[in-house]
Design a protein around this nucleic acid. Structure first.
Lengths: 173, 173
DNA sequence: TTAAAAATATAATGATCGTTCTATTTATCA
DNA sequence: TGATAAATAGAACGATCATTATATTTTTAA
């Protein structure tokens, strides 16, 4: 991935996350990324294509973070809760970018929509892989999503504390 | 509220919820509501003003639903969970419209942003009023928000079942 | 029936949208 | 150095955006 292309993805992710996809024009992205508009169309077929690349890179970063915590802990539920807390703390509190992308492209046949659904199914599969049954996996993800939302209106550290506490008492080890 | 004005609010709410605020133009709203564009500007100062009215009416409906359940139950936590489940089941699964509006207008000084923050604070206050301490109120709202998000990718009935189960075991009676 | 109010159709504003085209410049590397 | 590739600036496309102006019609009530 060339430096210019990566600059585009990084600035697009930040702007999309802070303001939404429809709210941000390509001109704003290329300007802040110090890239020509034609360079963007040289690297991506369309705005939708850029959105998908943003989601793909964000997904990779999220699962890498989960894996790094799970691999160095013997309490997998708590490890996931701690990783998610770290994820929340590391960015502005503006909700889950994947769900927000899905909400903006609510047509279930749209590539962005199907990508997000697959991402959340991958998250459930990730949890199940750590020896949680279907019900516990659902409950754990519900707690993660709840923390993401609540952190939009309540101090993220307080939310993280409650999340880890609830995960410990709710999810069977 | 005149019939035309109410038609505008109803169609705006549906379109905003399904596609997002920035994604929907006023022309689309007035066309589907069978109202002239100038009639919309006769009733509302701007698109932002229309959005605020949509949120206000939606908030009234939500709290009315919560109250009706709480007033006819002696288990207030479960009553709130059941009311929220009914709320989720009664519409498309596209997340929390309040948080989504806040995410689209992420400037903390924007009227839409401050309205949503006040709404979530009102929700926390509503829960506390039912004899829950600060910590339990936060936990209950975290579960509600988690259910709203999870229902976007998992069958809403299954989510509602887990929500009520988790509330029962998590929130002190 | 008549006066006031509400709603209408249409067009224009200036701005921005995603996308495409052309032509020129810069960077890479043999 | 010279050839190839990457990035650039700038304009144009048709479309849509929120908003305002004008003028006409419809509805409501006295």
């Amino acid at each position: 991935m060339s430096k210019k292309k990566q600059d585009l993805v990084d600035h697009a992710e930040s702007l999309f996350y802070n303001h939404g996809i429809h709210a941000i024009g390509l001109k704003r992205i290329v300007t802040e990324a110090n890239v020509a508009l034609m360079t963007m169309y040289n690297h991506f077929e369309s705005k939708e294509d850029l959105v998908l690349e943003v989601l793909k890179q964000r997904e990779d970063r999220y699962f890498d973070l989960l894996r790094s915590h799970v691999n160095t802990s013997d309490n997998q539920a708590l490890a996931i809760a701690r990783a998610h807390s770290e994820w929340l703390r590391s960015s502005r509190q503006n909700g889950c970018m994947f769900l927000r992308a899905k909400e903006e492209y609510s047509d279930p046949t749209h590539p962005i929509n199907t990508y997000v659904v697959a991402h959340k199914e991958a998250l459930l599969a990730f949890v199940k892989k750590e020896n949680f049954n279907h019900e516990d996996a659902m409950r754990l993800v519900l707690l993660l999503e709840g923390a993401t939302s609540l952190a939009e209106v309540v101090d993220v550290d307080e939310v993280a504390t409650q999340l880890q506490s609830m995960v410990t008492t709710t999810i069977g080890e």
